[in-house]
């Protein structure tokens, strides 16, 4: 399959601050590729470079073989963009926004009619297309922007935090709509997100990005597998004041504990699969003067993979 995005050694500096640090990745045709990372990791900056709004400091990026710096006009013809924050004219109706968008891409009247009908159906917007965006809820406006992104037969659609501020139900709906639209239009999708479930549900491959660098690229399945087969996570209380490091030191020596993924509350241990691990741990903790407040044995998820590759959780990363 052809690579629709090829990025090599891409770097962007703002003064002394390095926003994107020497990243490489490729996105294949019809693939949904996700950038998973905390706010400020460099996801949006990378997108801005790829959609020709920002010049890189060094390195190169090609969309469908066109260089984003040297051939921005050709690049723009190949892409659809859904920005993180509002980008439509709210005095106009959804249909008027879509129609003007088509005109800007020099689509003929028949083409526009056909495509508008198609994307309205894909994003389940039929019936509200003649209402001014001002009078519609934020989630619907967002769907119009996604519809617009897919309207011009783009080879690549960029979705910058598509479901930010959505409730669970609206988020799940939009995910499946994005999947449908991508299938129907045959586009590849590059999306940025800091929602674990979004990356897990939508993406064929995920790049974990932190501190302006890509630290891992793989399928969500493989990323989870790289963490281990089974995890146990728990909150503990220190009854005798021995310190958490003492507990960690002791628990590491248990023969079914493979390693420590996270050494502060909630603690996460990589373990061998087996019966009765939860009970064993509770007993063990009690014996050395600790008490387990809550405990959960589970398979690794993408959150654990993020932790595994970056040494911190997304929430910690966002906090500081």
């Amino acid at each position: 399959m052809e690579d629709v995005i090829v990025v090599e050694g891409l770097t962007k500096r703002f003064g002394n601050f390095v926003a994107v640090n020497n990243i490489d990745f490729t996105v294949k045709e019809r693939e949904i590729f996700g950038f998973l990372g905390p706010n400020g990791a460099g996801k949006s900056t990378t997108i801005k470079i790829l959609i020709t709004l920002l010049h890189p400091t060094s390195g190169s990026a090609k969309i469908c073989g066109y260089d984003v710096v040297k051939e921005p006009y050709n690049v723009r013809k190949k892409i659809g963009v859904v920005f993180q924050d509002r980008s439509s004219d709210r005095v106009l109706t959804g249909r008027q926004n879509l129609d003007l968008h088509g005109r800007m891409y020099t689509m003929s009247k028949e083409e526009r009619e056909k495509k508008i009908k198609e994307v309205l159906r894909l994003l389940e917007l039929e019936g509200v297309e003649n209402i001014r965006l001002n009078s519609l809820p934020e989630g619907v406006r967002r769907r119009f922007e996604v519809a617009r992104g897919f309207m011009t037969n783009p080879k690549v659609v960029f979705l910058d935090e598509p479901t930010i501020g959505f409730d669970i139900k609206a988020r799940r709906d939009l995910w499946s709509q994005i999947k449908d639209a991508k299938e129907k239009e045959g586009s590849a999708v590059l999306l940025t997100t800091h929602y674990i479930e979004e990356a897990d549900y939508l993406c064929d491959r995920v790049a974990i990005i932190d501190h302006a660098k890509i630290v891992a690229i793989d399928t969500p399945e493989n990323l989870k597998k790289s963490v281990g087969t089974m995890l146990i996570s728990f909150q503990i209380g220190d009854k005798n004041g021995n310190g958490l490091s003492y507990f960690i030191d002791r628990v590491k020596r248990l023969d079914w504990v493979i390693g420590v993924l996270k050494d502060n509350n909630p603690i996460i241990l990589k373990i061998e699969k087996g019966e009765g691990r939860v009970l064993d741990l509770i007993e063990f903790a009690d014996k050395i003067g600790f008490e387990i407040i809550s405990i959960d044995e589970r398979e690794p998820n993408l959150e654990d993979a993020f932790l595994y590759y970056t040494g911190r959780t997304i929430r910690e990363a966002e906090g500081g």
């Binding site: 709004l53 723009r76 892409i79 509002r86 968008h101 800007m104």
Partner: peptide, 13 residues
């Protein structure tokens, strides 16, 4: 301010 400029800036125009 209202963001519409971005949408037209990435159009091939």
């Amino acid at each position: 301010d209202f963001g519409f400029l971005k949408e037209v800036m990435v159009a091939p125009v």
